[in-house]
Design a protein around this nucleic acid. Sequence first.
RNA 1: CGGGGUGUGGCCCAGUUGGUCUAAGGCGUCUGGUUUGGGACCAGAAGAUCGAGAGUUCAAAUCUCUCCACCCCGACCA
Length: 408
Amino acid sequence: MRQSQLFTKTVKELPKDETSYNAQALIRAGFIDKVGAGIYSYLPLGKRVLDKICDIVREEMNAIGGQEILMTALIPKENLVTSGRWETFDVLFRLAGNDQKEYSLGATHEEIVSPLARKFILSYKDLPFGVYQIQTKFRNEKRAKAGLLRGREFLMKDLYSFHTDQADLDAYYEKAIGAYKKIYDRLGLGDLTYLTYASGGSFSKYSHEFQTLSAAGEDLIYVCDKCRVAVNREIIAEQKACPVCGSEQLDEQKAIEVGNIFKLGTKFSTPFGLRYKDQAGQENPVIMGCYGIGPSRIMGTIVEIYHDDKGIVWPESITPYKVHLLSLNENEQADRLYRELTARGIEVLYDDRELSAGEKFADADLIGCPYRLVVSAKTLKENSAELKNRNAKTGELVSLGELTAKLP
RNA sequence: CGGGGUGUGGCCCAGUUGGUCUAAGGCGUCUGGUUUGGGACCAGAAGAUCGAGAGUUCAAAUCUCUCCACCCCGACCA
């Protein structure tokens, strides 16, 4: 991508209506645009990051047998009446169509996926299975805050699994935990993310959250470092010890909830009449689980964690471009290099603008691609370009012929 | 939803004891020129319903009322 053609550019000043780091940095660098409180558009750079996060999530969901679908954003009132949530779910956006029929904008999709599953589950032979979607969710939060960390409109992956019995759900639930761990590892959040025990509702003792340690977090969790698990604030009163090893040495930490998984049991299969016939011909309720993760919140979380005083430092797995190529008034050689690297499948953001060197360096640091490549009169004297890691203080000269081999 | 704060060109802001405000400055943009390894410089130019509405007054960005938006703290967050 030629930066001269890129839609959006960076700005020097901090936006006055944002104080959270993730929103400030992402707006300054041109990744997102604010439309209202907790409502953001994703611009070309931001969309690329979001897509990469979604791709990682998608791959890991597919790896545990999830099948991708896309459900409706409009949910008819009657579906929510059936589950009893039309009246009780306080963050629902409610609206009426021209026909006076009422709807809500989808805040979660048990009320859509349950009747959907009912159409196809007749027998134990139809179970188990899991379906998921990646879709915009709408929640009318009383107070949106912290940029991408708590929005009124946000992207979410929600997977729903369907089982004949508790043991099968339990086994799948463990597989889902494994898949989630892989996701956080691939996103560069593995070391900071803790499986966190939360209240389980009526069906199981616990549900689980995935919490990433960060000063920007609004949750407090109690961490057992030995077991790499934590307990959330809601249940710490009755769960004062590590649920794994029993230790009472728990550290209080601020964290961002980056995922949660729930054993729903029959909570939705009962009201929606979701049953199957077992081998003896008996009808039984289907046992359900749900598994959520928010790619947009994860994008904000990563920015909160991976930055320095000059800007964002993207993990390689989700960077908008791998290489930021800067030409300092040497467009001919830089153009050639841009074409070569791109032809080899390397994602390059090419700063071909007629700006001062300082401005290009500042923008490159702000945008935060992991590799910076500078072509200038100085480097061309050596028939080279300067390669610098975003995290490194200084770069190294690499001869033009060896460049593609040098790039990881 | 309770409390606090803020709204002035695309962005950041000065001005708010009413009057030289015909609204200042910086960034950005446009034109011309000089520059080019850490947000360069010179000259010129364009760009503003001062959040919205109503009111007070000879006179309102400035005072009053109502409303709206955004930020922060708290409550809330199947």
